[in-house]
């Protein structure tokens, strides 16, 4: 059974008076431990797909299953739990909380899961160590470079040890060197920890690390390429 399974998924939303059909009958399977790159031009439905894969939103019709559970059948609190425990997000613009130190940013998802303070601090430090920022724990985001911020974001995504890392254009705001190192980091996470990594990207280099590239067009999968 696939970890994530999408069947004939459509998603419509209202933008003013017009109805936008962002996804139009999309099918997709993602297996445990895979690195999947989702590519496609703007407006092809990448972000919407990402929202559904990340349990941030539910389809208008069709099935979206996580380990066989239909996400549409879950209540909002249940979706919150899934987001908090099973999925980690990495965003293009890092989206760190500016008022908090790197360590507190990493601890944030653990706070919402009510982990004890001490355990949280240890885990956050270990995670920052892992992404190579052990000495930056007490820096605020604006004291860090772009690459470092994205590393903090990756550490935050790993906070509650989720199975899935969803990365939306993780290299989009980085120079190529920082970008590469982030991609390497994600690759390691898949290889060493068995994380399932889903990358939404324009970046051909990012696609390089993927096991499989899914190309979207007009809200549906145009082509899937196994990457060797």
């Amino acid at each position: 059974m696939s970890l994530l399974e999408l069947r004939d998924v459509t998603k419509e939303y209202q933008l003013g008076k017009t109805t936008v059909r962002a996804l139009r009958g999309l099918d997709l399977d993602i297996a445990q431990g895979e690195i999947v790159a989702i590519m496609g031009p703007s407006g092809s439905g990448k972000s919407t797909l990402m929202h559904i894969l990340g349990a941030l939103d539910v389809p208008t019709s069709g099935l979206a299953k996580l380990e066989g559970t239909d996400l549409a059948s879950l209540s909002e609190p249940q979706l919150v739990t899934i987001r908090g425990q099973r999925i980690g997000f990495v965003f293009q613009t890092f989206n760190l909380i500016q008022t908090l130190s790197a360590q507190m940013n990493v601890e944030l998802p653990m706070i919402f899961q009510r982990l004890p303070r001490k355990q949280r601090a240890q885990l956050a430090c270990a995670l920052l160590e892992r992404v190579g920022l052990g000495d930056r724990a007490h820096h605020k985001p604006n004291e860090l470079s772009g690459g470092e911020r994205q590393r903090v974001a990756v550490a935050r995504a790993l906070a509650n040890d989720p199975e899935i890392i969803l990365a939306d254009e993780p290299t989009g705001n980085l120079d190529s060197e920082s970008g590469s190192s982030i991609l390497n980091l994600l690759k390691t996470l898949s290889r060493d920890d068995g994380k399932t990594i889903i990358l939404v990207t324009h970046d051909p280099e990012a696609a390089e690390i993927a096991d499989r590239i899914v190309r979207l067009k007009d809200g549906a999968v145009r082509k899937e390429v196994e990457h060797v």
Binding site: G54, T81, R83, G84, G88, F89, N95, P109, F112
Partner: peptide
């Protein structure tokens, strides 16, 4: 949005 994405309840 970020807090909610990383598991904050309403």
């Amino acid at each position: 949005g970020v807090m909610k994405a990383v598991g904050a309840k309403n």
